[in-house]
Design a protein around this nucleic acid. Structure first.
Lengths: 318, 318
DNA sequence: CTGTTAGCGCATTCAA
DNA sequence: TTGAATGCGCTAACAG
């Protein structure tokens, strides 16, 4: 690879002039400008970004640590993020991490000048006192960082219930293991919706302990005759697919007998019937993050909360 | 962030000694070694990798350009690659690209000193004469690069047919649009398996033109009475899900009436019945790539061809 | 064993 | 309008 020295020599000007032409490019005589451009072309010269980084103390690299347990969900994040980042001439440095210690070692390796900023996405384990306070947490639990983007789970649950009720489903079961710490928010929205619709709250329809969703569903099915539930709220699409299979194994039709609703996102695989869900716009999230990274004013991102959209299955598909 | 100067000043030694302690660390008096270590600890100093990169002319960054049209398939690649790369203290710089021109601009931005190497994954458009000859192509078509990893499609098709025949399916239809350029290899394996099993080749069961798989399947179904096909080979899992839905819409049971087989990989979503498939080990692929990147001898990776494993559905699940 | 010096490739002074 | 000099943070060669 040729350097700025080669160009300056070939063009018969100094390094400074070459640099001027390639950046600002003002206050340079046309003749030498052309000479530089010609030399650049001839040598196929391109400035070394590492040298520029050393000088500017910024690399344009954004570290993204994916801590998502559902690996398939990361794709949506990554695609949206990369799209927005590259539009701002930023690069996405990808790491996966499945535990707090893995996150820390990833952070260690990324914050030695390589990355200007780091995001952590989807961690379901505590991330307090990381020792790095300028990290942005996206959809993570127990975020004591000033900069974080959370999803409004209460809003999601409330919307979900209101939709289900509008569809004539008044016995709504809720299975939402409390790994995410967001369970109480979900419950809040759930109760709120019931109240607003003058429906009683039935403790037996709600399963928020850490036991498996499969067991919870079995309990529900065992007591189906007395509970009479006709809708089921679950944490995410993956969970939804699981319970649907289980329901069908018990000869419950979906959504005929029981309407299953996913509280977070979806994997739209062709050939798999869509279920109603709350979906969070990855694009909106990415845009928010990138704009914050670009501005980089002193003020923090704050407890930014993102609300999801209600997605209902296209009836033509069924 | 503190620099080596801060450390040397605090430790009362020269920059060189600090550097010595932190790297090689041999030939340094114990006293000054400890002084350096103490200062490092106190200042929480860590060497700036950018400065090191400028000197060594390597960044440890590997650019990965995902050109996969099926975005969900990239996750497998990325996860395996990142795992192996980080084990070799290398970083994964992620880009998505959906066309030749996007690939080129991504390459432009990545090869200015930022990345030591670049991979392109899953491109289904021609990638000749990119102007970069040290790029590694993975599962790309029309690869005239010396370094590429291809999947053995002939072997996959042959294995698939042999499996289907062993299951009593002797009328095997094949739908494999020729976008990938690998269609002729697939056909080769298909024919080979038929020959070895003394079965006739029926041209009407094979659809390799660029028309939609949906239309091809309709043709098959329209002539079902005469064709009597009881197995269907498709290009990938996505395609498989599509045809399964379509088959079920025509009251064909899967795999009862027709066994669907995916020739490339699979998305194992819980709750979705597994179908037989050829799966390529992402781990093996990543290991191969990383070892090649690390060796970096003069010799090329060569036309490395990877064979997939036959995955049959676990009967307990059905 | 250790300090000084030079230079990786670049942009930005400061003079001319 | 331009060139020479400086320094980003670091390592390697050399000299002590």
């Amino acid at each position: 690879m040729s350097t700025i020295n080669d160009v300056s020599r070939l063009a018969g000007v100094s390094k400074a002039t070459v640099s001027r032409v390639l950046s600002g490019s003002r206050g340079v005589k046309e003749a030498s400008r052309l000479a530089v451009l010609k030399a650049v072309e001839e040598l196929n010269y391109r400035p070394n970004v590492i040298a520029q980084s050393l000088l500017s103390q910024t690399t344009g690299c954004i570290g993204v640590i994916c801590a998502q347990d559902n690996i398939n969900q990361t794709t949506g994040y990554l695609y949206a993020l990369e799209k927005h980042l590259s539009q701002h001439q930023k690069h996405l440095l990808l790491r996966f991490a499945n535990s707090r210690s893995e996150v820390i070692s990833a952070l260690d390796e990324l914050t030695c000048g390589l990355c200007d900023d780091v995001l952590i996405i989807g961690a379901r384990f505590p991330l307090n006192n990381l020792g790095y306070d300028d990290v942005i947490l996206v959809d993570c639990v127990e975020a004591d960082t000033p900069n974080s983007i959370q999803f409004d789970h209460a809003f999601a649950a409330e919307t979900a219930c209101n939709y289900l009720i509008s569809q004539g489903r008044r016995q709504i079961a809720l299975i939402h293991p409390d790994v995410s710490g967001s369970a109480e928010r979900v419950l809040l929205g759930y109760k709120h919706a019931l109240e607003n619709n003058f429906l009683p709250f039935n403790r037996n329809l709600v399963f928020m302990d850490a036991t498996s969703a499969s067991v919870a569903l079995q309990v529900l099915l065992n007591n189906a005759s007395t509970l009479n539930f006709n809708a089921l709220l679950v944490a995410d699409e993956q969970e939804a697919q699981r319970v649907i299979t289980q329901l069908q194994a018990f000869n419950k039709s979906v959504p005929g007998d029981i309407m299953v609703f996913s509280l977070a996102g979806s994997v739209h695989l062709p050939g798999i019937p869509t279920i109603p869900a709350i979906e969070y716009s990855m694009d909106a999230m990415a845009a928010r993050i990138v704009s914050w990274l670009s501005e980089k004013t002193q003020d923090v991102l704050g407890a930014c909360v993102l609300r999801g959209d209600l997605i209902i299955p296209d009836m033509r598909q069924r």
